[in-house]
């Protein structure tokens, strides 16, 4: 049936494709990173070939995130112990091409749960969500030197910035950047938690306020009665020309599709509209991914299925197809 591209070793826990879909990075329980490449990038009809393996960490790698290609071939590896290591493929001082650890972010008090990388004003930024409910935004100072980062901001995922929740315990976090291209302007991102602190959970859209040099929540994607719901996954759809943004948010109540207006109202908030609440995975949603047109959403979850969602011609969202893995 489906075309098999690759078999992976026992102990492989996660995988991630790069921007062009010709490189695959995988992480393993023994803390190693493996990289696979298509033999000929011009054609995807051939199989993947193993190109590099390196030990990143002592612990299990939970997630791999690619850095935008404007910064080279770089991945961030999030390990289950809560640290993030940046590795870069590089040729240095007449050594052969290899992946090298450039920077490791870690904190003794809290663990990194999720990271995403984006470009704003031609600067690379890393948004990291921590298990204590904090968000940190780091900035790369030198575009060719991945060791040199600076903390730009730190805040909690709450609408009301006065309150602080020190003893939060977050199980997972989900970050999704507004998928705009080229990074010529300030980016915004979406963040949510799966935690014991209701105020932290709901998905919020964060935007950088240039005038006051701080991050502001400009929208909250939850109805008043759902604000404390634990969020499993979020995904911001690419916008190829709609007059609104489309965002998917998965909670224990189901999969919600939101429209987010482009123009803020008088109090600086972006108008939001919940378009649909869909059910399907019956439990945790692991991952949600939009296709490059932003019209089809693919999801995976506890039931082990891959599900595809689309809106019909009348704007009604529905499940279009599902895939059931079988041996």
């Amino acid at each position: 049936m489906a075309k098999e591209l690759l078999s992976l070793d026992n102990g492989t826990t996660c995988s991630s494709w790069n921007y062009s879909g010709i490189r695959l990075a995988t992480g393993s329980t023994d803390g190693s990173l493996s990289v696979f490449d298509f033999r000929d990038p011009a054609s995807s009809s051939n199989n993947l070939r193993f190109t590099f393996k390196t030990k990143v960490h002592e612990g299990n790698i939970a997630k791999i995130v690619w850095v935008p290609p404007e910064y080279g071939d770089v991945v961030g590896c999030v390990s289950t112990d809560g640290s993030v290591s940046l590795l870069e493929e590089i040729v240095e001082d007449s050594q052969p091409l290899q992946w090298k650890i450039r920077k490791t972010f870690g904190s003794n008090e809290s663990k990194v749960l999720d990271v995403q990388f984006g470009i704003s004003f031609t600067r690379l930024k890393m948004v990291a969500a921590y298990s204590d409910g904090h968000v940190r935004v780091f900035e790369l100072l030198d575009p060719l030197e991945l060791t040199n980062w600076q903390l730009q901001a730190e805040f909690q995922n709450v609408v009301d910035s006065v309150s602080s929740f020190g003893k939060a315990l977050c199980l997972s976090a989900s970050i999704s950047l507004n998928p705009q291209k080229c990074g010529s302007e300030e980016f915004s991102f979406l963040l949510s938690f799966n935690s014991d602190t209701p105020e932290l959970n709901s998905s919020k859209v964060w935007e950088f306020d240039q005038a006051h040099r701080r991050w502001l929540p400009v929208a909250e994607l939850a109805l008043p009665e759902d604000k404390g719901d634990r969020v499993y996954a979020v995904a911001w759809a690419p916008n190829i020309g709609r007059l609104y943004e489309v965002i998917a948010v998965a909670t224990q109540k189901g999969l919600a599709i939101w429209h987010l207006g482009l123009n803020p109202n008088h109090n600086g908030r972006l108008p939001v509209d919940k378009i649909a609440l869909l059910s399907g995975h019956e439990g945790m949603v692991w991952q949600m991914e939009w296709d490059m047109s932003g019209m089809t959403l693919a999801t995976t979850g506890d039931d082990g299925m891959v599900r595809l969602w689309q809106s019909n011609l009348n704007g009604v969202w529905h499940q279009q197809a599902a895939f059931e893995p079988t041996s």
Binding site: C14, S15, A298, T300, V306, L308, P325
Partner: peptide
């Protein structure tokens, strides 16, 4: 299960 869209309709 992990998913990723490649170009176009390839999942």
């Amino acid at each position: 299960v992990a998913i990723s869209w490649s170009r176009g309709n390839s999942l």
